[in-house]
């Protein structure tokens, strides 16, 4: 195991449109890495360039130091699912995989084993055309696992799946990473990334906006602290002297920005002001993601819903304070 993906100044242009713009990053083994961005951000194009399906305009994508199209029998090194519908509907699941396996010198016993692993052994000889989306996703993943590869890439693997399917994909990915494999999945759903990945690469308009861990991302975007006290006026004075911006939230509680929870606790104790509740509040990862990609989204409707707007303001002010 221990294979790595490297992108070096990867660029793809379609005429005047730049889909991927000098993208450089690394995807390391042992963790699940998310490739996140709004629709049209260049995620799929980037993954297709990694796998030799699209040719970069400039730059290169390397898997363990080599371009994908230089790898002989690549299913032994890299497994990928780019499209759940990418199977001939007239072939059976077994035959579909057997054709792929044969091209890489993989035996039929392995085909049966991966079908069993993804829970499709019972329908192995049914035509793919009759499969549900979830079954086709499982078939795609079975194809990716055929050669027991060290690198696994999945493009939007949870699209259209039901709850059980999503849970299955999450656990499969985490188990693959735990075995030391390099796992990269793309999604435009931050909520999905938040519970599946360890690291996240955020792109917008083909550019890398962020390369960080999910935990760092949460910490960085801590928004404010909600404080409940029976003596709000006195605490406001104390916190203001500490440099915080304090506003009442309407329920008698205070919202403090620019000071963390331990500092508030210490200052209140020092002033002899009782604290009934002290709650650090972060922007949700969804909010952070929307904020980061708002200027990089290719297609987006105007959002007027109050909660999202309010959250964005909170996240923005938190970033300014940081």
């Amino acid at each position: 195991m221990g294979r790595m993906i490297e992108l070096r100044e990867l660029t793809k242009r379609y005429g005047p449109t730049t889909a991927v713009d000098r993208l450089s990053c690394e995807v390391r083994p042992g963790v699940v890495t998310g490739f996140l961005g709004p629709n049209g951000a260049g995620k799929s194009t980037t993954m297709r360039m990694m796998l030799g399906l699209h040719r970069p305009t400039s730059g290169e994508a390397l898997i363990n130091g080599r371009r994908y199209d230089r790898i002989r029998r690549p299913l032994h090194e890299v497994g990928a699912v780019l499209d759940a519908d990418a199977a001939h509907p007239g072939r059976s699941a077994f035959t579909h995989l057997a054709c792929l396996a044969r091209s890489n010198g993989i035996g039929r016993a392995r085909v049966a084993a991966v079908l069993d692993e993804v829970g499709l052994a019972g329908v192995a000889h049914k035509r793919v055309g009759g499969f549900s989306l979830g079954m086709r996703q499982r078939l795609g993943i079975a194809g990716a696992l055929l050669g027991d590869p060290a690198v696994v890439l999945l493009d939007e693997p949870v699209n259209g799946l039901d709850a059980a399917g999503i849970r299955w994909i999450r656990s499969t990915l985490r188990s693959l990473a735990a075995q030391g494999r390099t796992v990269l999945l793309s999604s435009h759903l931050m909520s999905e990334m938040a519970v599946t990945v360890d690291r996240v690469l955020i792109i917008g308009k083909g550019r890398l906006l962020e390369d960080t861990s999910i935990h760092e991302m949460r910490d960085r975007f801590e928004r404010d602290v909600l404080v409940r006290t029976p003596r709000p006026a006195e605490l406001t004075g104390v916190l203001t002297r500490l440099g915080a911006t304090v506003t009442p939230n309407g329920d008698g509680d205070l919202i403090a920005v620019g000071v963390d929870a331990p500092a508030i606790g210490d200052a209140a104790a020092h002033a002899g002001i009782p604290i009934h509740a002290l709650t650090p509040r972060s922007a949700t990862l969804e909010d952070v993601y929307l904020q980061m990609t708002s200027s990089a989204a290719e297609y987006r409707a105007t959002v007027t819903a109050a909660p999202t707007s309010a959250a964005l303001v909170g996240a923005a002010s938190a970033k300014e304070n940081n």
Binding site: L51, D69, D83, A87, L100, S103
Partner: peptide
């Protein structure tokens, strides 16, 4: 053409990327 029509050209090229 059947591989382009059914999009199975993707997996085919992932298995044999040397066009």
């Amino acid at each position: 053409t059947s591989e382009f029509a059914t999009r199975s050209i993707g997996p085919a090229l992932l298995a044999v990327p040397q066009r």
